[in-house]
Nucleic acid binder design. Structure first.
Lengths: 115, 115
DNA sequence: ACCATATACCTTACAGTCCTAGGTACCTAG
DNA sequence: CTAGGTACCTAGGACTGTAAGGTATATGGT
């Protein structure tokens, strides 16, 4: 399944923030986590994730720090800030609104027997 | 409440298609219907809707026809096509995937006291 | 020693599109 | 005759996902 560009964009911020609420993480691991969480349905490219992480950092939603993996590779570790937690709750409210609005209409599309 | 730009974009196509499943309609009325459905939470500008309608028409999801209102003003009436109905179902599947993916994480952010 | 693969990060060129701001035109009410 | 609602459209700037490419290190196979 290929998720629409707009929907990918809309998921991006809340998904990253929610993953960082679980635990501090880094770019490459976040990409794996997203694949894992969606059972492969959502595939992000690193070309979209890294600019997003920089943007979230600039907005103060996440904090960043250089570190080193056990194998000796450099990693940029990200953790969520208080502002980021607040933003995540806000995003959640907005998604609820979106689902409520769309939800009222989905029903009328509703599948006739055939599928 | 101000809905995020990305989420507005993600809602746009399914919302328009779902409204046109209800009944044939036209631009200005769609704007009102969206406000109504979201209880004022979602506010679209006509500057984003008309290009969207043209795009959906170009993609074959909707068909258009000029008409006249009872008061004598010209209107462009839109109706959904078979391709559009299929696209709506596809969008619905994608939203379900998005909600499933995010849903697994929301829980760890906070416990929803209300709603 | 050599090469492929995985890990790990970053950037640019291109294309698509949302927002702001403007434009056109008609009708009703004060 | 002015203001506001109805009704449609478009142009320019800004943003961002995609695709593609770049840098660098570690591991495992041959």
């Amino acid at each position: 399944m290929n998720i629409d560009k707009d929907l990918v964009a809309a998921m991006a911020t809340p998904l990253v923030l929610a993953i960082l609420v679980e635990d501090t993480s880094y770019g490459y691991a976040i990409l794996r986590r997203v694949r894992e969480l969606s059972a492969g349905d959502v595939e992000w490219t690193d070309g979209m994730l890294y600019p997003l992480l920089h943007r979230l950092e600039r907005l103060g939603y996440i904090g960043a720090e250089w570190g080193v993996s056990p194998e000796g590779r450099r990693r940029r570790y990200y953790e969520i800030t208080e502002t980021g937690r607040a933003q995540l709750l806000e995003q959640r409210r907005q998604w609820a609104t979106a689902n409520r609005t769309l939800g009222g209409l989905w029903g009328q599309t509703a599948s006739p027997a055939g599928s």
